[in-house]
């Protein structure tokens, strides 16, 4: 049995190289029991590599993994019965029914309590008697979620779990995650869409190009406050530049166009920016949640060239350090 104080999932200096490519570089993570932990980052950031390392599908080039107190390699089959895994690219046998597929997985999982498959299928809206090959992407994903949850594993490792699900089913999935967490199950999930993780995760780790860029709660990382802004003002450029000075506008550029003076760029303080803009006659204003890639690049620039060495040491509120160059992201 795992001691209650042992982290259900711990990695130390975990690295993975594929030939000359470093997919994951010196990752340190420690999850708490019952926690929902988000792994976010753009495609190619190392999320899937991390999860495949945890499941012992691939072997580390360096560093260690401890799952439920055990090395996944020596823990083997007995350990994996206590883990539920949803792969990012779910490939299923097409000729059998969803029910048969789930029953086959149940035979090689931890024991599945009677009626669990039916209850989960009902909640997510999956028709068990249909053949897997005839299921839509979303319905296949439901099957994948069920096989990960059905044996009530101590640890769930879910790679892009909401991919292909419609919003209602996503909501139901989030309830499953919340219930699992309340029952003491630990959940690691990944996404390249920030808002998804935001709703479910207690803490997140941001990965970029195989490195841990930041780690903390969503609020701490201020990821949710990052916005892309474009405003067109009816005012002379010099006046705009003068009056828009301040930390909220540090990442903005001001330029002229036929329509008027254009203010463009990123901010993590929408309130201050809008208040500053309110002094002008606005011809247009666009505020967007940026692509995660953009947010992370901004984070990466803020964090400096070696962020992974001290992810915990960053002040919770982040900083307003301006970007001084683009070399960090390239």
């Amino acid at each position: 049995m795992t001691n209650i104080s042992t982290p259900p999932l711990e990695t130390h200096a975990l690295s993975k190289r594929f030939g000359a490519v470093t997919a994951l570089s010196s990752l340190d993570l420690a999850l708490r029991r019952g926690e929902v932990f988000g792994l976010i980052g753009p495609n190619g950031a190392g999320k899937t590599t991390t999860m495949r390392l945890l499941l012992d599908l691939i072997r580390p080039s360096g560093g260690t993994v401890t799952l439920l107190g055990t090395d996944p390699r020596s823990g083997g089959a007995a350990l994996r019965r206590r883990v539920g895994y949803l792969p990012g690219e779910l490939r299923l046998e097409g000729r059998i029914t969803a029910r048969t597929a789930l029953e086959q997985f149940a035979r090689i999982s931890g024991p599945v309590a009677g009626g669990t498959i039916e209850r989960l299928a009902e909640r997510l809206g999956l028709e068990l008697k249909r053949r897997v090959g005839q299921l839509s992407k979303g319905n296949k994903q439901k099957l994948g979620i069920i096989q990960a949850f059905m044996h009530q594993p101590d640890l769930l490792v879910l790679d892009e779990p909401t991919s292909g699900l419609d919003p209602l089913v996503q909501q139901e999935f989030l309830s499953l995650v919340t219930e699992a967490s309340a029952a003491g199950q630990t959940v690691l999930l990944s996404s390249h869409v920030l808002s998804e993780v935001e709703r479910a995760a207690d803490r997140v780790a941001v990965l970029h190009e195989g490195r841990l860029v930041r780690l903390g709660t969503i609020g701490e990382l201020r990821l949710d406050r990052h916005r892309r802004v474009r405003a067109v003002l009816h005012a002379p450029q010099e006046v705009v530049m003068q009056r828009l000075m301040g930390p909220a506008t540090a990442n903005l550029s001001v330029g002229a166009s036929d329509a008027g003076t254009v203010v463009e760029g990123q901010t993590d303080d929408v309130d201050a920016l809008v208040k500053a803009l309110a002094g002008f006659e606005l011809k247009d204003l666009v505020v967007l949640e940026p692509a995660l890639e953009e947010t992370i690049l901004a984070l990466y620039r803020q964090a400096g060239p070696h962020p992974a060495s001290s992810p915990h040491a960053r002040p919770a509120g982040g900083s307003t350090t301006t970007s001084s160059g683009k070399e960090a992201g390239s």
């Binding site: 495949r52 499941l55 012992d56 599908l57 083997g76 089959a77 007995a78 994996r80 019965r81 883990v83 895994y85 792969p87 690219e89 779910l90 490939r91 299923l92 046998e93 997985f105 090689i108 999982s109 931890g110 994948g144 096989q147």
Partner: peptide, 12 residues
């Protein structure tokens, strides 16, 4: 691609 999910279950 199907072996991955089999291997992630309780088999050595």
């Amino acid at each position: 691609g199907q072996l991955e999910l089999t291997m992630a279950h309780g088999v050595g």
